[in-house]
Amino acid sequence: MHTLILITAAPTTRLAYHAFQLACAMKSKQQSFEVFFYQDAVSIANAQLWRAEDELNLTQAWQTLNVPLNVCVSAALSRGVSDEENAKRHHLAHDNLAEQYTLTGLGTLAEAIKSADHLLQF
């Protein structure tokens, strides 16, 4: 059984936190899953996203799982998140995509949906 965790919730919401907790549980049980960040959730991939010390930094938390972290490139760019290649292409001052996150297109999401037995959206 393979699960796609589709995260659309902003990083400041409980839903985004619950998505991470589910991924942690699935990883600990060695269950097959993949992650795709879309809509407001792409802000999680922003390396400049700051959180207070007493709050979970989801950007860093997801990095600890060592799983592919796919991020919708269009949604990311429209929310100010860019990798080096797109920063150059679109004449942006700098890139800010956090390490281990990958900008990808909706084709990746379509393939993930097609291959998943379950889709959970947060």
Rank of each mutant, 00 (worst) to 15 (best):
M1C: 11
M1L: 13
H2E: 14
T3L: 07
L6Y: 06
L6H: 06
L6V: 02
A9T: 08
A9M: 10
A10T: 05
P11M: 09
P11I: 07
T13W: 08
T13M: 08
R14M: 11
A19V: 10
F20Y: 13
Q21W: 05
L22D: 05
L22Y: 08
L22V: 08
A23G: 07
A23C: 12
C24L: 11
K27Q: 13
K27N: 02
K27V: 00
S28W: 09
K29S: 15
Q31G: 04
Q31R: 08
Q31Y: 06
F33C: 09
Y38F: 13
A41L: 11
A41E: 00
V42L: 00
V42Y: 01
V42E: 02
S43N: 15
I44Q: 01
I44Y: 03
I44L: 06
N46A: 05
Q48V: 08
L49R: 15
L49M: 13
W50I: 15
W50C: 12
E53A: 13
L56R: 13
N57D: 15
N57C: 15
L58C: 03
L58D: 01
L58Y: 02
L58I: 07
T59Q: 03
Q60V: 08
A61T: 02
A61E: 02
Q63T: 01
T64S: 14
T64A: 11
T64F: 04
L65P: 01
V67A: 05
P68Y: 01
P68E: 09
V71E: 00
V71D: 03
C72T: 09
A75I: 02
L77F: 10
R79S: 06
V81E: 03
D83T: 02
D83C: 05
E85I: 10
R89S: 12
L92C: 01
H94T: 14
H94R: 12
D95M: 03
N96G: 02
N96P: 04
L97Q: 00
A98K: 00
Y101C: 05
G105T: 11
G105V: 06
L106K: 11
L109Y: 02
L109Q: 01
E111T: 10
A112H: 02
S115R: 14
D117Q: 07
H118V: 10
L119A: 09
L120I: 15
F122R: 03
